[in-house]
Simulated scan of single mutants.
Amino acid sequence: MGLENQFSIVISGDLCPTKDTEHHFISGDHEQIFGDCLPFFENADFLVGNLEFVLTDDPKPIKKSGPILYGDTAFVNIFKKAGFDLLSLANNHIKDCGEEGVQSTLKAVAKIGINTFGAARNLIEAKKPFIKEIKGKKIAFLTFAEQEFNTASENEYGANFFDPYEDLDLIAEIKKRVDHLIILYHGGIEYYEYPSPLLQKKCRRFIDKGADLVTCQHSHCIGTIERYQDKTIVYGQGNTLFGYREGNDSWNQGLLLDVQFNENDFKINYKGVQAIKEGGIRLLTEKENQKLLKKIEERSKLVNDSVFIRESWQKFCRKKESLYLPQYLALNRYFIHLNRWTNNKFISVFFLKKYLRSSHNIMRCEAHNEVIQTILKRNSKE
C-alpha cells in the first residue's frame, strides 16, 4: 500500500471446486479460475478464505444428510498460486470424509505453506486463533462453524464450533493480546438475505466481547451489513468460488472484503465477484459493483428494525415448513405406541438411517434448530 503504517487484508467467502471448475483445478489453471481477481489478491498484504471441501486422494465419504464435498489434494495448489495466506477449515464440510479427510486436508495445505485455522486434531487445537503481525499490528483471526457432521471433540479431529459457555470469554481473552480481532462465522441459514434473530444476537455478542469485524459465510447469498457499536457485521458474503448456476445471481455473486488498515483503525471496501459460465469468477465492473452495493445498502437499512427482523424470519420459516416438518416429525401417537410395542422395530423398518440423521442434524445445528423451533412455536400457538 506504500505507506509504512498501512496495510490491507482481503477476506473471501466460500471456496469449492464444482463440475464447471474441476477441469481447471486438475490442469492447475488458477488464471482461468480467478481471472481478474488475481491482481486484486496480489495487491493485498494478506489473503484469507474458507476452504469448503476436503482435500483427499482416498475419499471415504461419511454417511450424513446433505452433499459431500471433496477434491484431490493437488487442488490446493490453485490457492497457493492465487496467493492465499490463510484458509479457514471451520465449516460444515471439513469432515465429509471423516477424521482421515481432516488429517489429509491439514497435511496437504501445510505441505505447500498455507496456514490454516478452525480445524485440528482436537477441539482445544481447533479453537486456537491464528495471529499475524503485519507492519507492527497484531491481527487475530478466529473462526466458528455451526454443528453438523463436522465437529471436533476432546480426542477427535474436526472443526471448531461456538460454545457460548466458553467462547465469549475466549473472544475477550484473545482481544487483550492483539490490536484487532476478526471473526469468521460459518453459519446462518442458507439462501436467506437477513440475519435470523439468533444469528444477529450472537454476532452482536461477538462484538460486545471484543471482535472488531464479524463476517458470516455459508449462506450462499450476499446478505446485509450492520454497523453495531461502531463495528461491522457482514451477514453473508455469498459464494466466492462455488460454481455457476444459470439465471441465479444470488448464487453466482459474492462479496470480497478489502479491509484497509491505518495507524489506529480500518475501513472496509466491498468488491463483488461473479461466477462465469466458463468455470471461474471475475470481478464486477465498477458500474456493476455500485449497483450491487446500492442493493445491499437498501436491504441493510432494515437490519436494525427488530420488528422487521422477527417478521421476516417468521415469513421465511413458514416457507420452509413443508420441508422441515416431515424431516423432524415423523410419528404421531399411534405410531409411537406401535413402535414401543415392536421394541423400536417400526422405526428400524420404516425410517431409514438417513432420515434419523436428518432429524439429528436439525436438532443440533444452530440455524436449522432455530427454523424448526420457530415453526413449532407458531404451530403450537395456532
Rank of each mutant, 00 (worst) to 15 (best):
W251F: 12
Q274E: 02
R245W: 09
V259R: 05
N248I: 07
N248H: 14
N264I: 03
N248T: 03
D249H: 05
W251N: 08
G247M: 08
F261V: 15
D265K: 13
I276S: 03
K277I: 00
L241N: 06
N252Y: 04
D249R: 05
L257C: 07
F242K: 08
G272E: 00
W251R: 07
Y270A: 06
W251M: 07
F242G: 04
G247F: 05
L256M: 15
A275W: 01
L257A: 02
E246N: 12
K267M: 12
V273W: 02
Y244K: 02
G243P: 04
R245H: 13
F266L: 10
R245Q: 10
I276N: 00
W251Y: 12
Y244N: 03
E263Q: 14
G272K: 01
G272I: 00
V273T: 07
N252L: 05
G254F: 07
G272N: 00
D265N: 14
E263K: 13
G272C: 04
L255H: 09
K271M: 14
G254T: 09
V273L: 00
K277H: 01
L256S: 12
R245T: 08
N264F: 03
N248W: 14
I268Q: 07
D249E: 14
Q260E: 14
K267S: 15
L241I: 10
N269A: 14
F242P: 04
F261I: 14
A275M: 01
K277W: 00
N264Y: 06
D249S: 09
D258F: 04
D249T: 11
A275Q: 00
